[in-house]
Amino acid sequence: MTAAARDGILYPPASIAVVGSGQLGRMFIQAAQAMGYRAGVLSATPETPAAQVADWSVLGPPDHLPALRALADRAEAVTVEFENVSAPALRWLARRRVVRPGWRTLWTCQNRLREKTFLARHGIPHAPWRPVRTADELATAARELGAPLILKTASSGYDGKGQVLVKDPAEAADAWASLGRAPCVAEGWVEFAAEASVVVARGADGRAAAFPIALNHHENHILATSTAPAPVGPIVAMEAREAALAVAQALDAVGVLCVEFFVTADGRLLVNEIAPRPHNSGHLTIEAAYASQFEQQVRALCGLPLGSCDLTRPAAMINLLGDVWAGGEPRWERALEDPSVKLHLYGKKTPKPGRKMGHITALDETPEGALTRVREAKRRLMDKD
C-alpha cells in the first residue's frame, strides 16, 4: 500500500476499483464515493451501469493482461462484483495489489462441483447431489438421487440459466444433452417451504458480521422480492446467520458474500448456493441497515472496521425487470406517492424481459407491511390509466 495507507488500512481519497461493471459494481462505487474514495471499474464498454458513475474506467475483458496492468496502475485495492472472474487473472493481480475476496474464494464458488465438495468437506448441510461428468456418472446420479432431480451446469449458470428439471430418470440423457453434456451437478429434489439468504461481511482480521436473514420469492427463477427480517422464527434466524458465518470462515473470505438457503417445512436449513460478493437480496440494506452490504464491501476491501449489520427497521425490496417497460415508460411518480419508497435505477438503456433494470425498497414497522408497500408501488408504476 502507498503513503495513503497506515497499519494495513487504505485511507480516502485512495483509488480503489471493482472488476465487473453491472449494477453491483455501480452500487459499490457509489458507496465508495460516499466515503471519499476515488472508485474505478474494469468494464467491457464505457456505457455500463458501473462505468456511468465511476471516477475512472479501464476498458477491456477481466482476463485481458493489458487491462489488468492498467487496473493495477490506477487502483490500490480491487474487488469484484461477480464470481465468474478468471482465477488466474485475480492471482496475477493479487501479487501487485490488494485483492479481496481472494482468488481461492472465487475459484471455489465459481464452479458448482467445487462448491458442493467444499460444503461436504466442511459438514455444512446442503441438498443431496452427485457429480455428472460422464454418462456413467449421470446414470449413477439418476439411480441414487431418484426423480425429480435438477441438472445444473458446473459453471456459468445464474437466474435459472444452465438448469434442467428431470422428472423421469429416462429423460436424464436428453436433459444432459440439452446442456451440451457439460460438467454438471445433479441435485436431489428438495421439498422446501421457503427460500432465504444471509449476507455476511468479513474483514482481513477474521472479524465478521451477518445481516438478518432475508426471505426471498422467485418468479421464473429470478429473484422477485426480498423481505428482512424473514418471519422464520428466532431459532432458524440464528442458525442461518451462524451457518453463513461458518461458510465465510471456512472459505477464508474477505469482503461480502451471500449464502442462499432452502428452508424445509420442519425448519431445517440447506445451503443452496454461495455468492462471494454482494447479492440482490441485500439491496434493501442500502436503506434499512446501519451499514449497507456495499459499504461493508468498501470497509473490508480497505481494511476498515466493519459497520453494524443491524437493521434500523424492517424492509422489503422488489426487482424491476425489463417487463415493467412493456406498456411504455413506467409512471415513476406513482410509485413514489408512498414517501417510504426508494427507487433505484441502474442506467441500463435497453429494457428486456427478465433483465434487472432497477429495484424499489420500502421500510415499515413490519416486514409484511414493507412487502405490501413495494408490491403496491410496482403495481402503481405499471398502471398506465
Rank of each mutant, 00 (worst) to 15 (best):
P305A: 13
E295T: 13
L311W: 07
S308Y: 10
G307H: 02
A316G: 14
V298E: 10
L343K: 00
V298K: 10
W332N: 01
A315Q: 07
S308K: 06
L345K: 03
K342C: 08
L301F: 08
L336K: 01
L345A: 01
R334N: 07
V341E: 01
T312D: 12
K342Y: 02
R299S: 08
A316K: 03
A315F: 11
R334Q: 15
L345T: 15
G347I: 01
G327H: 15
L336S: 04
L301H: 05
P339H: 05
V341W: 03
L304V: 02
C309H: 09
A326E: 14
A300E: 04
R299G: 00
P305L: 13
C302W: 03
F294R: 02
A300N: 06
L336G: 00
R331C: 02
G322N: 07
G322Y: 06
W325E: 06
E337I: 00
R299K: 08
L345S: 07
E337C: 00
L306S: 08
E295N: 12
L301W: 02
G303K: 00
G307C: 09
A315N: 12
Q297L: 15
R334L: 11
A335S: 06
C302T: 14
I318R: 08
L345N: 03
W325N: 04
H344K: 07
V324T: 14
R313N: 09
N319H: 11
P314F: 04
Y346S: 07
G303Q: 02
P339T: 09
D310W: 12
T312S: 14
R334G: 01
L336V: 01
W332E: 04
D338R: 02
L343H: 01
Q293Y: 07
P330Y: 04
D310M: 08
V341I: 15
Y346Q: 12
M317Q: 06
N319W: 06
A316D: 04
P330R: 01
A335V: 02
S340E: 15
M317C: 10
P330L: 05
P314I: 14
H344D: 02
L320P: 04
C302F: 08
M317Y: 09
G307W: 03
P305Y: 07
I318P: 03
R331P: 00
L336P: 02
L321M: 15
V341C: 06
S340I: 04
R299Q: 13
G307Y: 09
L301G: 05
A315R: 01
V324K: 01
W325G: 06
V324M: 12
Q296R: 09
Q296A: 07
K342P: 03
D310V: 12
M317L: 11
V324I: 15
A315Y: 04
Y346M: 10
D310R: 15
V298P: 00
E333G: 01
